[in-house]
């Protein structure tokens, strides 16, 4: 028999694994000295994020994440890497000279956020077992009635981006 407490334990374990994977690969993204390795690490982070979305009962977003990010965006990145003829092997100087500045800034930010989050949300629980999976129908209802205007705006942004990318990248 599957108890609610078992589900929660399973979810927590799953979360721990996914989170560990994401953080490790995210660190690799920003520390790897090989551009292609960095890109592949990013794929792992995205995949982890998609898994988290499933855990958060947002299936449609998870699927979109896989399709758009892992499918399209990553291919774009790899193309970018290739077209700019970055060396496919190891590269010594992917970091700029002031890279040291980034560490204190990031740690400072992290400290503030962790403190603020801990202070603000404390031990507030998500009801992991209750509630149903967010249905795609509900999302489409939302997008196409109250959020129709932002949706149109977004369509224009995408159109502009397509045109802009073509204009920028044309050779003549």
């Amino acid at each position: 028999m599957l108890l609610a407490s078992d589900v929660v334990v399973a979810q927590n374990v799953g979360f721990g694994i996914i989170a560990a994977v994401m953080v490790i690969f995210a660190l690799r993204v920003v520390s790897s000295s090989n551009v292609v390795h960095a890109a592949l690490s990013l794929v792992m982070v995205m995949a982890g994020a998609a898994a988290l979305y499933v855990l958060l009962a947002a299936e449609f977003v998870a699927v979109t994440q896989v399709l758009v990010y892992i499918g399209a965006v990553m291919v774009l990145f790899l193309f970018g890497v290739m077209l700019t003829r970055a060396k496919l092997g190891k590269e010594g100087d992917l970091n700029n000279k002031n890279w040291g500045v980034g560490i204190p800034v990031a740690i400072l930010l992290l400290g503030v956020m962790v403190y603020a989050l801990g202070d603000g949300w404390g031990r507030t629980k998500i009801d992991a077992t209750g509630g149903s999976v967010v249905s795609t129908t509900a999302i489409s209802d939302l997008i196409f009635s109250p959020y129709i205007l932002p949706f149109w705006g977004l369509s224009f942004v995408l159109l502009a981006a397509v045109i802009g990318a073509i204009v920028l990248a044309r050779k003549d």
Partner: peptide, 26 residues
């Protein structure tokens, strides 16, 4: 003219501002 330096300043300033806000509000 280096974007990274500007970025450091931006995020650093944001972090400091956030700390100030936290201190003020707590």
């Amino acid at each position: 003219g280096k974007v990274s330096l500007y970025g450091s300043l931006l995020f650093g300033a944001a972090a400091v501002a956030a700390i100030v806000l936290v201190l003020v509000n707590s």
